[in-house]
Amino acid sequence: MPTRPPRSPQRRVTARRAGAAVAGAGTAAVFYGSVIERNAFVLRRRDVPVLSPGSAPLRVLHLSDLHITAGQRRKQQWIRSLAALEPDLVVNTGDTLSAVNAMPAVLYALEPLAEFPAVFVPGNNDYYAPRPKNPLRYFQAPGDLPTGLTRLPWGEMAASLVDAGWTDLTHVRTVLAAGADGAAKVALAGTDDPHLRKARYELIAGAAEPGAAVRIGVTHSPEPTVLGAFAGDGYDLVLAGHTHGGQVRLPGIGAVVTNCGIDRARARWLHRWDEHMYFHVSAGLGTNPFSPIRFCCRPEATLLTLTPREG
């Protein structure tokens, strides 16, 4: 049987150089994602045509997946600085905590934003502390429930936010005054976390407030069943997070995972659900402390300017 001739010395050198180049590129990518990009906070801006014709625009600051720990002073200061935007409404779609001792840091970071109408719902990592994971498998498979995790003091955290002026939207429907002189009535409804199977949409079901300037649904994980329920009740816009936009996105591929029922193509940013309702998925501001890397997916907050519908 003929045998393959041995590689020439030059081919062996070329192969070693190629391997070294690949390893070097991988190391550089990890360094960039864990040191540079995960701290490169950015404010996104999007227009959403969901108001009645002739309505004055409303500015909604959407925060999500802050994953705050006590030592993240840079992130805390950046969040505080968002108060300078003077939004008409602030919406936090969950995963705010990341450690048992993070409550003072959360309250400090969010304190200036309570000057405006502000609402929140919890996410899965508000109930349970994160644990070490491979960055490419940051999220649990859809439907998996956590076991053996450290519980976080979410009940105490939620009560402290309410005391600071925030509105807890967990299975609550309400109408808040927003805009200039509080002239715009914003109808809001929120759920508990769908990822942990805590969402009970039936507790808020029913036609959205018809007399409101806009009707907004709030949830942590953008599960299609929840989005469809909001759409069926006539909501104009749903805000969610959870996906981190994929957290690690690959050129030409996009999000590697979403860890929920939404497709990878809609793992972040603004999309239409149907002819009437939009939904916005924030890529969020944080990461699992044990997987502190983002790649091609900068940490973000979004200022949504609600504008009149065409026609």
Rank of each mutant, 00 (worst) to 15 (best):
A178H: 12
A178N: 11
A178Q: 12
G179P: 09
G179R: 11
A180G: 07
A180V: 12
A180K: 13
D181A: 15
G182H: 09
G182Y: 08
G182Q: 08
A183W: 06
A183L: 13
A183G: 12
A184Y: 01
K185C: 00
L188K: 06
L188E: 09
A189L: 11
G190W: 08
T191H: 07
T191N: 07
T191Q: 06
D192R: 08
D192I: 04
D192N: 14
P194H: 02
H195W: 05
H195A: 15
L196Q: 12
L196F: 12
L196H: 10
R197E: 14
R197H: 15
R197T: 11
K198A: 11
K198Y: 13
A199M: 04
A199L: 06
A199G: 07
R200E: 15
R200M: 12
E202A: 15
E202P: 04
L203A: 13
L203H: 11
I204V: 15
I204S: 08
G206I: 05
G206A: 08
A207T: 14
A207C: 02
A208W: 04
E209I: 05
G211Y: 01
G211F: 00
G211C: 00
A212C: 05
A212F: 08
A212V: 05
A213D: 15
A213Y: 09
V214Y: 01
R215Y: 04
I216H: 02
G217W: 04
V218R: 02
V218P: 04
H220A: 05
S221H: 04
S221P: 06
S221I: 07
S221T: 15
P222Q: 11
P222R: 10
P222N: 10
E223C: 06
P224L: 15
P224H: 13
